[in-house]
Design a protein around this nucleic acid. Structure first.
Lengths: 99, 99
DNA sequence: TGTATATTTCGATAATTCTAAAAATATAGT
DNA sequence: ACTATATTTTTAGAATTATCGAAATATACA
């Protein structure tokens, strides 16, 4: 993973509402949670919540699966793990390296 | 660590220049690197670099130690580790929990 | 078709952050 | 005191992001 992509993921996690969404999904686990359930848990206006969820989706930290009217948000643990590994790694930190 | 503090740290890592600074410091290890050396590595104007470094310092991801005219920037691995643990943990994700 | 529920998109304002030149500060050597 | 090097602070405009009401869309069911 390159710096720029990792920075984007970190930036999305670096907002209190989005971090709260993500951590709630980490807690509920692989089955994920409906948008509405997240909204109840966090008490945020729907339009605001939708905005933040779509940003998390945009960097792959969350996937969404629709089941009739309900949209489930599912945390992507593999993406998180990759990000953490990247943060700790000492490889490819040279400015010229584009890996 | 509470959500708000973790979000701040993640936000600081979520910027391409700051992430590059931090990753460079992870690479050089515990002895750290002078501001000037980081500047050469990343090719960023001094005032811009200083601004980003001070943000990383403000959340504890970096410490600075002066040796005469040279300011060394030292990565705080323990702070990074704590942040990573927090991200993966399933504890205290309830909105009401302030831990 | 009409109504209800679930969620997103639009749009506009407010707030924050980024960038970098210029000026200031800190330390050391002459 | 003067000069050089290392780094920060100030400042201001540009760019991005956050918030949320209102309107729109998607699905299901009567």
């Amino acid at each position: 993973m390159e710096n720029e992509i990792a920075a984007k993921k970190l930036a999305e996690l670096g907002h209190i509402t989005r971090l709260s969404i993500f951590r709630y999904l980490v807690k509920v686990g692989d089955q994920g949670a409906p948008v509405g359930q997240i909204q109840e848990e966090l008490d945020v206006p729907g339009s605001t919540l939708s905005h933040h969820i779509s940003r998390l989706v945009s960097v792959g930290l969350i996937k969404q699966v629709r089941e009739s009217r309900i949209l489930y948000c599912i945390p992507q643990f593999d993406v998180l793990d990759e990000l953490v590994e990247f943060l700790k790694s000492k490889c490819c930190t040279e400015a010229k390296c584009k890996l």
